[in-house]
């Protein structure tokens, strides 16, 4: 997917509070949260940016 923007979830704990808001809103179900570990399926994601809005602390960036 050469034209896809990159999506970065800052999940090392500097921003992310592991609340699962992004997981619940992703229409494609491509984010998974396990305690303090976030897995994100790059291939399925359409960069719809819904998770970016849902994240209360701004830990998800699309650029």
């Amino acid at each position: 997917m050469p034209n896809k923007k990159s999506l970065h979830i800052e999940s090392s704990g500097q921003l992310c509070v592991y609340c699962g808001a992004c997981v619940g809103v992703c229409p494609l179900n491509c984010i998974y949260l396990d305690e303090t570990r976030i897995t994100f399926d790059e291939r399925i994601c359409t960069r719809c940016e819904i998770c970016v809005k849902a994240c209360p602390v701004g830990a998800i960036e699309i650029g």
Partner: peptide, 12 residues
Amino acid sequence: QLSQIKGMAEAR
């Protein structure tokens, strides 16, 4: 409400 959010980290 998500529909009223424009950017990042607006809740905070």
